[in-house]
């Protein structure tokens, strides 16, 4: 089955019917937090590859795994949990149609929750042993849940990039979007931030995922993700990511 919008398509190659799934997004952003977290969840829970996303707006790239060329943006599933995961940097031009596609597809699947996993770049990350995770959501009850679960709300500020677009589109489509954003190194892959996001995510989507192995592999991940991080940083600069360090004009 194919789901297409604005020249961008999701190809379902083995997606199983599931009722009100939780959909996780691991897109390239600050500290590659979402990509590292979702990659770990896919591995730890043994999720299976069930589809991919493609478009002419994406770079002409395939990634080889065990000799098989694969699409860099793929979809994984285990039961009611679905994960979107990308292995390549995404150009700013591709983000708007990609975000619309993801949200409309989530609505089509009757998703109970669309989770954006990302980072907030903090200059003092070097001194933080355990980075804080902030939450935000498109619905009031979910914002209450975030607070009740002891997660600080992202009260004020700007968010720039793929998760900003997903959030906006979710409001249009009435899809419940939860954002979990960990304090992170702005320009280095941050497995420590990813580990803390996973721990908070489990409060909303229970899963049998530990973070010990993620922490143990931290240095290896930091080494292997350097090139993706550098390309992502270049793209973030193009999309005006520095606005996240500005204050919003309106205080209510």
């Amino acid at each position: 089955m194919t789901f297409s919008i604005d020249g961008m398509s999701i190809y379902e190659t083995g997606l199983m019917e599931s009722q009100n799934p939780v959909i996780l997004c691991g897109l390239p952003d600050i500290g590659l937090v979402g990509i590292i977290a979702v990659s770990h969840i896919i591995k730890e829970t043994g999720m299976e590859e069930v589809g991919y996303i493609d478009s002419d707006l994406f770079p002409p790239v395939v990634v080889f795994h065990h000799g098989e060329p694969k699409y860099p943006i793929r979809i994984f599933q285990k039961g009611n949990l679905i994960a979107l995961f990308t292995e390549t940097a995404l150009s700013p031009e591709s983000l708007s149609p990609l975000s619309k596609l993801i949200v409309k597809w989530a609505k089509d699947k009757g998703a109970s929750l669309l989770v954006s996993i990302g980072g907030i770049g903090v200059p003092n990350r070097i001194d933080l042993e355990s980075p804080k995770v902030y939450g935000a959501a498109t619905s009031l009850p979910m914002r209450e849940s975030i607070k009740n679960l002891g997660i600080p709300l992202m009260e004020e500020g700007f968010l720039v990039g793929p998760y900003a677009l997903i959030s906006k589109e979710s409001k249009v489509e009435s899809v419940l979007n939860l954002l979990l954003l960990a304090e992170s190194f702005p320009q280095y892959p941050d497995p420590g931030a990813a580990a803390n996001v996973i721990l908070e995510l489990k409060k909303f989507a229970p899963m049998d995922v530990g973070v010990k192995s993620l922490t143990e592999r931290s240095e290896e991940i930091r080494m292997n993700a350097r090139e993706l991080m550098r390309k992502t940083t270049e793209n973030m600069q193009k999309m005006g990511k520095s606005q996240e360090y500005e204050l919003p004009m309106m205080y209510l």
Binding site: P123, R222, R226
Partner: peptide, 23 residues
Amino acid sequence: CLEPLSEIQETELEIILRVDIPC
């Protein structure tokens, strides 16, 4: 040899250079 990821921050009085060197 690997090239490390890095970031440079400039303030009025100093330049802060951070370099990621896992392992």
